[in-house]
Design a protein around this nucleic acid. Structure first.
Lengths: 240, 240
DNA sequence: GAAGAAATCTGGTGTATACCAGTTTAGCCT
DNA sequence: AGGCTAAACTGGTATACACCAGATTTCTTC
């Protein structure tokens, strides 16, 4: 008959959750360290970590590599079918958006990319890597692929402005259709490092193919979102 | 200077992944037990579990409570904006769909539901809980809410047939618009038990509001999907 | 005060062990 | 062959401990 029954991970979850819900720990607040929590609740650090991972799984908290655990801010609403700019979405919802171009280069389409963009293998493509954040926190990485023949001067452009606006205004392209794929993936080691997330962290994977009126794929992009940062909203109107 | 460097979780991931990708362990195959893997690779069970959880996070494997770990079958493609029946989707993709009605009752709309369905608080609603699977594996739970005044006889109907077909044919309703919300949540203890998933397991949360031509909310449902079972595909056509 | 080095703190990852609660299997009995 | 029981097996969860690497803070030095 154990004198002191074990403190369970579920109990630790409850303890932490009540403090988050009560507002004692507001958005972006730093939680006590794992060791401090395990001392306070008379349990082991392993149990505390188990509890923290469960709260992380449903997006209530997140961690920043070796800096600590933080209360997750509200999710951003996002409609991937609208090809709309992240910047506008973020501003409309009262956030401070941030974009950084990580890489920009010309590549040749491999088998997979050629299929996705409906071009011949070896076709020259412009590849852009960007990361984007709100309120100082990086929330997703994106890899953009554009047909080099359609955007001959694009590599000269400043990469931080809204790409969709630029494509629309400067190149006069009109979007006709967007195909969106959403699933769950995990971050590669390199991606995890950029987002300051742990190795193998699960994320939202969103890929989009944008077609113009002639049916050409004018943009193909892959986004890797922190799973706790995003709420996807899609509205579909049925044809009459 | 350590004589035997530690076996890392990443190495265990590599070991398991190579066997899955090579086809040595096909879809639905049972992996060796955690203890057998840790013995074979000369590492601890904790490290093996860490590796298994990473593969679980990106949907390569899944676990069934206290039965073992299994190779995840291909994801099912699903377009939540089409209000289409799961059964049809599954059949088209060559799966054997399965549906079971777990619960069916009349309730009164609380504050939250009243808002979602655009009715007054206290309005009588029909609530249905179902679970659905493909090829013998449960993949999601759904909670459906219908206005009792619009479907007076529905509670008498056999619950296992396609609800959307039934609504369309039997009640002559035409769908006009669907609002879809997608995010990540975690399963409640009760939900986890039904899906044979571990406590606090992360899942896709999809909620849908279907409006008819008069703008009435004729159906509101919440779906909780195994995160590894689903690939969401949405196509959006821009207006001319 | 600014710059740089060192100590401290934090999560990340590994070791070994233990016991519990369902699932599956093996064996026994009828 | 069928049915029951008990043993073995599986993952789930907890203990305690140790060391690493990066982030942060503090202290020292100029």
């Amino acid at each position: 008959m154990p004198i002191k029954p074990h403190v369970t991970a579920a109990q630790v979850c409850g303890f932490l959750e009540s403090r988050i819900k009560s507002g004692e720990w507001g958005a972006e607040a730093k939680l006590p360290s794992e060791r401090a929590i395990s001392d306070q609740l008379q349990t082991s650090r392993v149990t505390v970590r188990e509890a923290l991972k469960r709260l992380e799984a449903n997006g209530q908290i997140y961690r920043s590599n070796r800096r600590g655990w933080f209360v997750a801010p509200p999710r951003i609403d996002y409609d991937p079918s609208r090809s709309a700019h992240f910047t506008q979405y973020a501003l409309e919802q009262g956030y401070s958006p941030y974009t950084e171009c990580l890489m920009q280069r010309l590549i040749q389409a491999d088998d997979d990319l050629a299929g996705k963009m409906a071009v011949a293998e070896g076709t020259q493509l412009l590849e852009l890597h960007r990361c984007r954040g709100i309120n100082g926190r990086l929330v997703y990485l994106e890899e953009i692929f554009l047909r080099a023949d359609l955007w001959p001067d694009l590599i000269e452009q400043p990469p931080d402005q809204s790409l969709s606006t630029m494509l629309r205004n400067h190149y006069g392209q009109l979007f006709k259709q967007v195909d969106v794929d959403i699933s769950i993936a995990s971050l590669s080691a390199a991606q995890a490092e950029i987002l300051q997330a742990p190795a193998g962290c699960s994320c939202f994977y969103i890929s989009r193919r944008t077609l113009n009126q002639e049916g050409l794929v004018i943009e193909y992009d892959r986004e890797y979102w922190r799973h706790d940062a995003l709420n996807i909203k899609v509205t579909h109107q049925f044809a009459e």
